[in-house]
Structure formats: structure tokens, C-alpha cells
Design a protein around this nucleic acid. Structure first.
Lengths: 342, 342
DNA sequence: ATTTCTTGTTTAATCGATTGACTAGATCAT
DNA sequence: ATGATCTAGTCAATCGATTAAACAAGAAAT
């Protein structure tokens, strides 16, 4: 037998005022006298009154929920994004309504629909691989000038979608990674990981490619694959398993730290260390990177910055869509060493 | 100029029926004729109608939101819990309303309050360190026979809180860890990590202590500290830095895999490997554990099972509080080797 | 003394959907 | 012909808050 919840009506009745008065009193409206306000607040506390946000939102047609839809959480870097986003949203008195799309367009679509139905006051989206303009039709029907709810994209860019985007400058990150290896004397470099499905992978690879060309070096060898530790490990074994011809790469650029972690494991397992046999540079600078042995050299992505800017832009509900590229940063640690082949 | 949202009224008006009819039609109520139903559904689609869950919930006094409050997300094992919970909730057509308490009682309290205000239909709580009965007063005022909303605790046990709890059997896990080392011939064993603040740490340590006593071995050396990679690393350096007297431990039981990862790093850095100089066993079996080099021997916690059972029990809103202990499992990998000292 | 301001509170409409009670009209039974 | 049953809807109350507008009563102004 669930005793009905205490509502504003109960509080008002107890004090002997109307619901309207009670409502105003609880929010310290100056139109209500000190005395009444105090009595209402006391009664609310005493009776165990629970504010019903849904009802309030219905009337105000506003909501404190912000939908956060992430493509995936199995990669810890997205978890780091989530932590920063949640922190910033809380700081702004917003609540997180979370969806994990598991890189599945249908799940993402379903979540966006739900976000609308819940009346979320904004949407923070890290889109699933392969998302296009049409996948966002739910929140942005054809012919409207603006989406149905303020939206900000993070981490992965989407072309032709005039929504604010907050991204790492992945092209530059790719350049930096390649340049770091080049500066260590490496000439034969392999790209390991992400293919063409996300802007992140495309841009990082493009940046690295560009740096190689500029330095007059042979183009990157490509080894595309999933963003998994396992793949990195596999890649390391594969590379070190090749005969040590001059063509064998002496260094690898990993699309993501996660892959780099795997590569480091694989290299250690084969009995050498990264800096010795196969230099490795990652990208993201996940928390783990600096604590691994040997510590991972990587390109740091400003995850906190991206999260904060995105949330702030969302809540200001700026009408002008903008694309913000945050600068990455090289973090030199121990997995890149001088090229031995020379 | 935000054009007002399309409501049921608009749809009804368009079709030429009342709101009531439209409402029933959309939910395929048999009282409404096939024809009308079809026309309403067509109009809803054409006009871009968006269902307003908040309004519906208000009337039905029910909600599809389930509050999930996690003590912390910086430990990846909690992230794994979250993934499983989200998956199971989605499978049950529930939505995740997420809070991260950062091991802060005040934040946790605030989130619980908000969960009530949002009218969450249930609460899944992984309580913050040091949570007691009184910290849950918000959702369970004194004198009530049941909490204000169906609640299930996971991972960390709380005494004197008659709420369903879904836990790993940490005592057994501690025993298994110690037994594994004992079976490898280790006699001097150190406990690294969690102290008395969580049931998880207390029980694991108690289990390990018990196993040592049963085997007639000297009691565990204790090195309490935070659940961080850094601490594990520090512990490894500290232990290996001691002179190799017979008192120096030859093996370590880490409260959590996270700490074990750090220890492995520290050991590698000192130029040896775990199985050689200092055997390491963890607990949790995080995804990373098997992919690390050397792969971590650990006690696996059934994170998916805990998440699923908790969600299911929540949605059945069982009145009888129960405490479910899920069995852990030893996963033998490469960081435990035979004791050399003997 | 009458008007005008204040101040503090009440009245009633409203947000968008759901639902129990009711009804108009057709069909069927006696 | 009268009543019973059924179908396909409509009506109106309701969920719990917010808020514009109305109002009563005392204070200040004219």
C-alpha cells in the first residue's frame, strides 16, 4: 500500500493557504510575506514534500534534462568525455539523460526520439560511425531552419549538418604524431587502426599522411582495423613478425591510445620494448597512458575543454552553428625512440 | 522564433476528432475504429507529432526513467557496470538518468533528491564510500516501511539497510586470491589497496586474511591506499625497494585490478617481471586485464550478472529485500608465478 | 472622504496527455 | 414497439505544478 506522495496541495492545506501561495513561497517569491513563506517551508519539510519537476516542466515547457548520447562506452576515452560532460552539466544545474548507442544507427535514432519525447532541453551527441544528415532527421525534420532541440556535436565531425561542433583538431594531431616520429629519425612508418568511417580517423590519418609527404618520406603503410586493444596487439605481432627488411616500419602511429596500449603489450610480449624495436605513438592521452610501462608517447586531446565548451554552447542555445577545433598537444613519454635502422 | 511543438491537440484537430480519440488511436486502442486509427497515425506522422512523456507520466503517475547513481566513474570497472546496466535497462524499455557521485556524500544526496523530483521509477545505487542508513533518508524517511522508490544496491553492501543488494561475494574472492598465491608456494603476502571504507575492500581483505590463517601462514602485511594505478605503482616500487630479507613479500593481492595494473607497471619499470620478482593478483577482471602484458591473474567479478539481476529485481519491484551474492571466479594468467624464495 | 498605491493572497487558466463515465446511433432480440 | 447490446466516439476530470489577472484590505496621497 503505497501512501500517495505528498504534493503541494497537501502542504498548502496544512498551512491553510492556496496552492498558488505555497508554490510561490517555496521558490521564495517576494510577493509572499516572510511569515507565510517560513510556514510553508516548514510544512513542506515536515510533511516530506517532494517537488514534482515533471509537472513544473510541463507547465513551464522547459526541462532540466540534457540528453547525452555517446556512440560507445567501451573505449575508455569516451568514458573520460562522459565524466567531463557530467561534471559540467551538473555545474550548470542540468541533469544527464544518458544513451549509449553501441555504434548502432538504429539505437542512436531510437535514443534521439526518446530524448525529444522526454522533452530534453538539449542534446549532446557523439555520433555513431556512419551518421549522416538523414540520420538526424528525427531531431531536425526537413525544411526547418533549426533542430527541434539545441544540439551540439562532440569529437566526431559531421559534414553538411549545420549544428555546433566541438572537436579536437585531428588533422593537426595526425601531423604532430607523424612529425614526432620523423623528428626521431623514422622514415618507414605504419598507420594502425581507424579507417574511413569516422572523421576522427580520416583526419588523423590525413594529417599524418601530409606530414610524411612534406618531409619527402615514403607514404604511410596502412593497417586499418577496429579500435580495440586486441587489434593493436595483433598489429604489433604482425609487424615484428615480418623479416627485418628496410621496408619494415620502425614506428607506428596508432589511431587511438587504446590501440597503442595493445601494441605496447604485443611488443613487450615479443621480448623487446617499443623504443627499441618499434616506436609507438598514440592519440587521445587517456588517463592510463602515462601510467603504463613503458609510458605512452601520445597526442593529447583536450577532452575536458571539448566537454565544457559543448555544454556551455548548448545552454546558451546559440543560434549560430559554429565549428570549434581545439588544439591537441604532443606528450613525449617513453614509447618513441630514435630510429635504429639509420 | 521557435514554432510551438505539435501536440496531440493539433493532430486531433487536423483529423477532426477529439484529443481523447487521438490519444487512444495512437496507442491502438480497440475502441477506436481501424479507419480513424489509421488517419490519426498518418496525421501524427505528417505533422511531426512528438509524444510528450512527461505529460503522460504526470497523468499516469509513472515514469520510464530509472536513476542510476554511481559512486565514481574514474575506475573503469564502474564503467563496465554502467555499460551492462544501460544495456539491461534498455532491454526493459527504461531510460537511464545518470548521476556520478565522485565519492562525495553530498553529491550523492543531491542526486537522490533529484531522482525523486524527476519521478524516477527506480533507483540503482552503487553507494559512495561511507554511506550509511542515514544518508539514504531522502529516499527512505524514518518510519516508512519501504523506500519512496524501488531501490537496488550494487557492488557495495550496506548493513542495516533493508534494500535488495546485488553483490560480488567479496569474501570468497579474497579467499580465492590468497589461495591462488598460497598454491604457488607464497608465504609472505602483502595486501595492497582498499582499507576499511567499503564493504568490498573489507570483505576481500577479510577473505584473504582468513585463507592465510587457515593455511597457517603469517598474517598479511597491509598497505592500504587509494584505488588508483599510481598507488599500485608506488606500492611495487616500495616493496621491491626493500632489502630482500625473508620478510619481504613475494606476492601481492591487490584490492582491485586498477591497482594491480599499476603494480605491474612498477615491477616492469624496475627491470623484472611480476612472476619473477613479485607475483601479483588482482580482483575484478576488467577488460584490460587479459590484454595487458604480462596478462593479469585476477579474480573475475560477474559484472554483467550483477547489473542484470539488479535491474530485473528493480523492475519487478519486489517487496522482499534480498541480498544476492554472485560467485567470483579465478582467472589464471601470467602475473603469478611460483615462489622463488623456498 | 475619496482616490491611488501597496502588499499579500486567491482565482482560474494552463501545460499535454490519459481515462472513467457518458452518449448517439446502429443492430438485434422479444 | 420497446428494450438490450454494441460500436465508436465525446466529455470532462485529472495528474501537480506555474502564473497572469483579480481582489481585498490597509496605507498613503490628494
Amino acid at each position: 500500500m503505497t501512501t500517495r506522495r505528498v504534493t503541494l496541495r497537501d502542504v498548502a492545506l496544512d498551512v491553510g493557504v492556496t496552492v498558488a501561495t505555497a508554490s510561490m513561497a517555496l521558490r521564495a517569491n517576494p510577493r509572499i510575506s516572510q511569515q507565510t513563506t517560513a510556514r510553508v517551508q516548514e510544512a513542506a519539510l515536515r510533511l516530506g514534500y517532494i517537488y514534482n519537476r515533471a509537472a513544473a516542466n510541463l507547465r513551464q515547457t522547459s526541462s532540466s534534462l540534457v540528453a547525452v548520447c555517446l556512440s560507445d562506452l567501451s573505449n575508455p576515452v569516451f568514458n573520460e568525455f562522459l565524466i567531463h560532460i557530467e561534471e559540467e552539466l551538473r555545474a550548470q544545474d542540468r541533469l544527464v539523460f544518458l544513451g549509449i548507442a553501441r555504434e548502432d544507427l538504429a539505437l542512436q535514432h531510437q535514443f534521439l526520439q526518446t530524448a525529444l519525447e522526454q522533452g530534453a532541453s538539449g542534446l549532446l551527441l557523439l555520433p555513431v560511425r556512419g551518421t549522416t544528415r538523414t540520420d538526424l532527421t528525427v531531431i531536425w525534420p526537413e525544411g526547418r531552419s533549426r533542430p527541434l532541440l539545441p544540439t551540439a556535436l562532440i569529437s566526431r565531425a559531421l559534414e553538411d549538418v549545420p549544428v555546433s561542433q566541438f572537436l579536437n583538431d585531428d588533422f593537426v594531431a595526425g601531423q604532430m604524431a607523424a612529425q614526432c616520429l620523423i623528428d626521431h629519425g623514422h622514415k618507414r612508418i605504419i598507420w594502425v587502426g581507424g579507417g574511413q568511417e569516422t572523421s576522427t580517423a580520416r583526419n588523423r590519418q590525413a594529417g599524418a599522411t601530409m606530414a610524411m609527404a612534406k618531409a619527402g618520406l615514403p607514404s604511410l603503410e596502412l593497417m586499418h582495423g577496429p579500435t580495440l586493444r586486441q587489434f593493436g596487439r595483433h598489429a604489433a605481432e604482425h609487424i615484428l613478425g615480418r623479416p627485418a627488411t628496410p621496408e619494415r616500419p620502425t614506428a607506428a602511429i596508432c589511431f587511438s591510445d587504446l590501440i597503442a596500449f595493445g601494441m605496447v603489450s604485443g611488443i613487450l610480449q615479443s621480448g623487446t620494448t617499443p623504443a627499441e624495436s618499434l616506436s609507438v605513438i598514440g592519440c587521445d592521452d587517456m588517463e592510463e597512458a602515462g601510467l603504463l610501462y613503458p609510458a605512452l608517447t601520445t597526442i593529447a586531446v583536450d577532452k575536458a575543454g571539448i566537454g565544457q565548451l559543448a555544454v556551455q554552447s548548448l545552454l546558451r542555445s546559440e543560434h549560430q552553428a559554429k565549428k570549434v577545433l581545439l588544439p591537441p598537444q604532443l606528450v613525449l613519454r617513453a614509447t618513441v625512440g630514435p630510429c635504429k635502422g639509420a
